[in-house]
């Protein structure tokens, strides 16, 4: 690989916003539910599917980054008494967000296909 190729890769990385692991998990959790996703639902979805509890603030930090990248849209709901008079913020994936999640999923599938060490429990 020559110096020019490295420059092209760096330029490509600069132009494109890559998703972190938590961002991808949050984006997938936003895409998954039939009803509108909000903080509690997203964190429960991640905990249920990954087996790890994630701090709600981490979920919101990831959502902030995703919204800035244009992958999700936020909309404020109505305040409710069970939440101390505070409203829910509902999140929906954008077309760019769906495309990004699809790309990431395909890339991960291609990268992991044929790796025998990933199939068993032991390394």
């Amino acid at each position: 690989m020559c110096f020019y190729d490295n420059l092209v890769i760096v330029e490509d990385m600069r132009k494109r916003e890559y998703l972190g692991q938590l961002e991808l998990m949050v984006l997938l959790a936003v895409i998954r539910p039939a009803q509108d996703a909000y903080g509690v639902l997203i964190s429960r979805e991640i905990a249920a599917k990954s087996g790890r509890e994630v701090a709600l603030a981490s979920v919101y930090a990831a959502l902030e980054r995703l919204e800035k990248k244009g992958f999700v849209n936020a909309a404020l709901g109505e305040p409710t008494a069970e939440r101390g008079g505070r409203a829910r913020t509902y999140f929906k994936p954008t077309a760019a967000g769906l495309r990004e999640a699809r790309d990431a999923h395909r890339t991960l599938q291609r990268l992991s296909s044929g790796l025998s060490s990933l199939e068993g429990e032991t390394v």
């Binding site: 909000y38 903080g39 709600l56 919101y60 305040p79 505070r86």
Partner: peptide
């Protein structure tokens, strides 16, 4: 806390606490 949907985060925490 963060100004990004800070009220919603507080509401989510209260909801889960209850």
């Amino acid at each position: 806390g963060s100004p990004y949907h800070g009220d919603s985060l507080a509401g989510d925490l209260i909801e889960q606490y209850r």
